[in-house]
Structure formats: structure tokens, C-alpha cells
């Protein structure tokens, strides 16, 4: 199967399934064009021909049973055909081969987390070309949907339930993926960089690369980049896990406390107790965020247990320590 070029109507088709889906799409499209031109053409011709100045007296035509039965029954043939193709392709879409590379996809307001077979996590989706990849999708809060237009696949992320989709990419490159099920927004106030968080920003780019490149990427997930200090790695975790959605680093108050000057500060908790912010409090706030919430903030943060490993949490704490 060769990848297809984008057209006015459809983006490029980059999976083994996309050509057949596109064929069905265009079949329905051209069938619709023919029907539309036929029906509306006839209607406009009649309007022109039988306009009342030209045709002052109507002539009732009575019934025409063969015609009426004809246009009731004839569409059934086409309907059965497109149903059949659609269903056949749907069966292929929902029946992955046995030897898939499985990537775990978790949706949460408003980012995706991808967990690779080696246990590494990333907000980036990388997949090898030519290999059947299966995404095991779930949600940690509300409904989301994972949508990759170039592969023509989409599946809802439902809390408490796994959804799957699979594809085999036919070319390398980068293409957008989206959240397609409405899931809200983080309010009307933009983050430091002027961006907003919400359903519309729960998107990114899938990177399709050779198996060699993919394996290198997967390996890199488990530690800092070469030459990266622990605090820099922590800063990268801050960015990649989109902590900036709720925590500023310049003192701006957002949905969560700013990280500027946080380390070592005395904070009052919502239960009235005082806490000095140190390693154990930060670790608890990442793994069990609702346990001790700073007064004046809502317990809205999701847990990062299972998303961040111990070394990554250490790196984030190291980064927070640098923000005086």
C-alpha cells in the first residue's frame, strides 16, 4: 500500500487502511454528486419550464406506481453496497493483527500521556513505520477521543474502560493528532506563554519514523538527555508534562501555586495546618495531590503516579529548587 497525497477533501492517507476508506468516501461523494445534480437539475428545469407565467394551469399527473416503487427500491442496492464496504473496513479497523507493538494512551484534561513498551512515558507519540501499532486508550477523568486523521482512525477514551485502535503506517513523517471528544477548558486566563489549555489544545503531532529511530527515541525516555543536568531534565519534565497549564514559574497565580520561591516556603493548608515545602511534601503533591492542598486552591490536580517515575520526580524537585 502506498501513502496517498492530500486532496481538497481529505488529508494524506498514511496507513494501510486509509486507501480503502478513502475509496468508499469518494464512492459516496460521487454518487451524491450525481444524485444531487440529477434531483436539483430536474427541479430547476421544472421551475423554469412550468413557471406560472409560462404554464398558467397545472396538469395533475396522477400516480405512477412503477416510478414510485422504483425510487423506493433502487436506493436499497446502493445503500447495501456502501453499508457492506463500510462494515468490512470497520471489521479490519477493529481487528488488529497478532504481533502489534502496543502503546498505552492515557487522556486527561488536557494532555495525552503515551507509555511505551519499555515503561518510558512521553507526551510525544512516536511510532515505527511499517509495523502494526495498537493503541490502548483510556481516560483518567472525563471522555476524550484519540483521533489521527492521516490514519483515518478515532476512538473514544472512556474512564474505566479500554478502547483500542490500530494502524500500520505506510510512510514516515509528522502529522497532527487531536482530542475529538469535547472535554472543557482551563478557564479564560492564558498561561505565562499566552497559550490556553483546553479541549482544543489537547493535540499534538505523531512522529512516524524508521524502527531504528523509534527504538532510539524509546530508549531516551528513561533518563535525561545526554549532557542534561538533573534540574534541566526536571524543567523538560515540567514542559513535557504540561505542568505549566496550572503552575507558573514567575510567581503568577494560576490554578495551582506558582513554583517560583516555593521550595522552603511556609504554606498554610486548606485544613488549617502549616507545612514547610520540602522534598517529601513536593513528592506527595505529585503522587497524591489532594492529600494536602494549599489554602485558597481547589483540589483539581490529577495524580502523576504511574506517569512519572522516581528519578523524574527527583528531577522535577531539583528544578523547583532552582526557582528562587
Amino acid at each position: 500500500m502506498n501513502p496517498t497525497e492530500p486532496t481538497i477533501q481529505l488529508p494524506g492517507g498514511w496507513s494501510t487502511l486509509s486507501p480503502s476508506v478513502d475509496w468508499t468516501y469518494y464512492f459516496i461523494y460521487w454518487m451524491s454528486v450525481v444524485l444531487f445534480v440529477g434531483i436539483i437539475g430536474a427541479a430547476l428545469y421544472f421551475v423554469w419550464k412550468y413557471e406560472r407565467s409560462k404554464h398558467p394551469k397545472s396538469e395533475p399527473t396522477g400516480h405512477n406506481l412503477p416510478l414510485e416503487v422504483g425510487w423506493t427500491v433502487a436506493p436499497v442496492i446502493f445503500l447495501a453496497l456502501i453499508f457492506h464496504w463500510g462494515f468490512e473496513q470497520y471489521v479490519s479497523m477493529t481487528s488488529p493483527p497478532a504481533d502489534t507493538l502496543d502503546i498505552r494512551v492515557r487522556g486527561r484534561k488536557w494532555s495525552w500521556d503515551f507509555e511505551y513498551p519499555n515503561g518510558g512515558h512521553s507526551p510525544e507519540l512516536h511510532v515505527p513505520v511499517g509495523r502494526a501499532v495498537r493503541l490502548l486508550i483510556s481516560s483518567e477523568d472525563v471522555l476524550h477521543a484519540f483521533f489521527i486523521p492521516v490514519f483515518r482512525v478515532k476512538r473514544d477514551a472512556v474512564p474505566g474502560m479500554y478502547g483500542t485502535l490500530w494502524f500500520r503506517a505506510t510512510r514516515t513523517g509528522r502529522a497532527p493528532f487531536y482530542c475529538a471528544e469535547y472535554c472543557g477548558a482551563a478557564g479564560n486566563t492564558p498561561a505565562q506563554d499566552g497559550s490556553y489549555a483546553g479541549h482544543f489544545n489537547m493535540r499534538g503531532e505523531i512522529t512516524i519514523q524508521t524502527m531504528q529511530e523509534y527504538l532510539t527515541f524509546e530508549e531516551s525516555l528513561l533518563g535525561p538527555h545526554p549532557g542534561e543536568s538533573t534540574a534541566d531534565w526536571g524543567q523538560r519534565m515540567y514542559r513535557e508534562n504540561q505542568c505549566f497549564t496550572c503552575h507558573s514559574t514567575d510567581g503568577t497565580r494560576m490554578a495551582g501555586p506558582s513554583w517560583r520561591g516555593l521550595f522552603g516556603r511556609q504554606e498554610r493548608m486548606s485544613d488549617g495546618n502549616g507545612v514547610t515545602v520540602e522534598e517529601n511534601y513536593l513528592r506527595q503533591s505529585i503522587l497524591d495531590p489532594s492529600a494536602r492542598v494549599v489554602e485558597g486552591f481547589q483540589p483539581v490536580m490529577p495524580t502523576y503516579r504511574g506517569t512519572l517515575n522516581d528519578r523524574q520526580i527527583d528531577a522535577i524537585i531539583a528544578y523547583i529548587r532552582t526557582l528562587h
Binding site: L17, S20, V21, T24, Y25, I28, Y29, M31, S32, L35, F36, I39, I40, A43, V47, L79, I82, F83, W85, G86, F87, E88, Q89, Y90, M93, A145, F147, P149, R152, V153, K154, A180, E181
Partner: peptide, 28 residues
């Protein structure tokens, strides 16, 4: 007459949405 034109478009595009594999792409 506008209804006829627009309902025909609305109805025919419903075929895309009712066809399983095509709807997976177009859904939402």
C-alpha cells in the same frame, strides 16, 4: 426550494456518516 436543495445535501452527507469506516474518520 432552498429546503429541497439543502435537505438533499444534508441527507446525502448523512450517507457518509452512516457508513461505518467513513464515519470513524468524520465523527466529531
Amino acid at each position: 426550494l432552498a429546503f429541497l436543495v439543502q435537505f438533499t445535501i444534508g441527507g446525502l452527507t448523512g450517507l457518509f456518516c452512516g457508513t461505518l469506516s467513513v464515519d470513524i474518520h468524520l465523527h466529531d
